[in-house]
Amino acid sequence: MTGAPPAAAPPVRYRVTARTAETADTASIVLEPVTDALPPFAPGQFAMVYAFGVGDIPLSVSGIDGHRLTHTVRAVGAVSRALHGMRPGETVGVRGPFGTAWRLPDTPGADVLVVAGGIGLAPLRPLVERTLAAHRRTGGPAVLVGARTPADLFFAADVERWRTAGARVLTTVDRPDPQWYGEVGVVTTLLDRAAVDPPRTTAYLCGPEVMIRAAARAVVHRGVAPDRIHVSLERTMHCGTGHCGHCQLGPLLLCRDGPVVTWSQAEQLLSVREL
């Protein structure tokens, strides 16, 4: 890889130019380079985003627009809380791009199936955008989204736009509120209504690991080949450059060999407890 930043290189300064509250604890922040930009990010890759004095965390890109990056962050730890609380004008440090990208289908016109659980939709958003742009003539992707409650669903405006652009978006929640009139249940129950042709389908899954395992098995059961199922995995990451050892999953370093891997790579590894 040429132009890859060296390990231990300091972050590059980016300025927060917009912030959107997605749910009660999740926000998207739009970042633009203060001066120099990092090399271009691809959907599925991640950045290490640094909040001054607090630390950095791996965040997938949830939007790519030239040098403008969007990250969708849920406030759960010290760094993510700091980033979640960022307001336009504030500066963060960004390192990257790191890791593998979602691999678009090899064959044009292949059916694209996207299955997202919770905040797993964030890294899939730029993939859906690319797919819609690339497959205008065909049917558009099937996007299945599961969330805990209706209030935890986000990217509502994007989802509407995707539908208009030809995507079949199905949404389900675990716990409906009285106003919810949509589907209730786990995201895998939507698979039978995805209207994809399994032998021609490439699938992209992201969400909690248990959901990924269940969804991947269900997708395989319907006839999608394991090497055409792409999943994004998570583990601790400190360096992003393949040196700190934290993100090891068996033979893989997920910051380098992942986070996106195929189900044929992941299935056996995820079946070993505490690997």
Partner: peptide, 27 residues
């Protein structure tokens, strides 16, 4: 499948300590 779905939902996978964006831990 419905039994499996019910059990999965018992885990409340999207709840509490969910991750920040699909690649890393809560930090």
């Amino acid at each position: 499948p419905r039994l499996h779905a019910a059990r999965t939902r018992l885990l409340d996978l999207y709840g509490g300590g969910q991750d920040t964006a699909g690649t890393g831990p809560a930090r």
